[in-house]
Nucleic acid binder design. Structure first.
Lengths: 129, 129
DNA sequence: CTAACTGCAAAGGTTTTGCAAGCGC
DNA sequence: GCGCTTGCAAAACCTTTGCAGTTAG
């Protein structure tokens, strides 16, 4: 077990992610952070995001558009992904705790968690046709 | 709209995928197909897999382990992903058709479909500790 | 003959990693 | 000072693409 040390970069990455609600990719976050730390490297952003995911302080979203997205909200909730623009939205609906047990009955193993992604077209893309 | 032409390679890719139930990655499928077509290229495998996905004949699974997996079963069903070995299993549970409507009430857009991935440890990995 | 398809190889995009220097404790 | 962290750059990895040759209709 390795001991964590404070780092201004990690602090900033977490703060910045908590302040946004658009579930940025590592690269988008990197662009933001560079306003405060012009010399930070993309490798550092990735290393810290992975570290924060391991610590359970943030979560990684793999919604199928190529790059992973990150979310500072680790409470159970679901996401809506626009297939046109790729934007990822929080979905303020009740988490379905019971479906882990439902899945458990049919799974060939121990079920711990689940993720749900809803797909469709967001209002912005519907309007701008 | 472009017209499709028959190709032995595409035929073989689909047949091979239908015969397996382990949701292979493009590369794993490529290795299999090479037994029948030693000269097939990975690019051809990707091109045809994407084509088959567009046609709705197979589906792509993005479960978060880096590479996409493919599934010849396009009927609505869910998947169980082992976090230890990365194996993807079919989950023979009832599809929850109603949750699209549930999500629709809270979504900032038009919801078309959803995917659910359950995560945990598969029996093989539990046994081999 | 024409347009779709192929193999090959190169390029593209995302993420990880090795290394020497820097910094927290 | 020790060891975690950083910046940089290279590498690894997965997927797409350009091209010239092949094949189905």
């Amino acid at each position: 077990m390795k001991t964590l040390k404070y780092s201004r970069q990690r602090e900033s990455i977490k703060t910045c992610l908590m302040a946004r609600h658009d579930h940025p990719t590592a690269d988008a976050l990197y662009t933001s952070i560079r306003e405060e730390f012009p010399n930070i490297s993309l490798g550092t952003v990735y290393r810290n995001l992975n570290l924060l995911v391991e610590l359970g302080e943030i979560q990684k979203l793999t919604c199928g558009d190529g790059a992973d997205h990150f979310d500072a909200d680790t409470s159970p909730h679901y996401h809506f992904v626009c297939r046109k623009c790729g934007q990822v939205y929080d979905l303020p609906m009740e988490p379905m705790d019971s479906i882990n047990h439902l899945a458990q009955k049919h799974a060939e193993g121990q079920v711990d968690s689940h993720k749900i992604y809803f797909y469709g077209t967001c209002n912005d893309c519907l309007e701008n046709n």
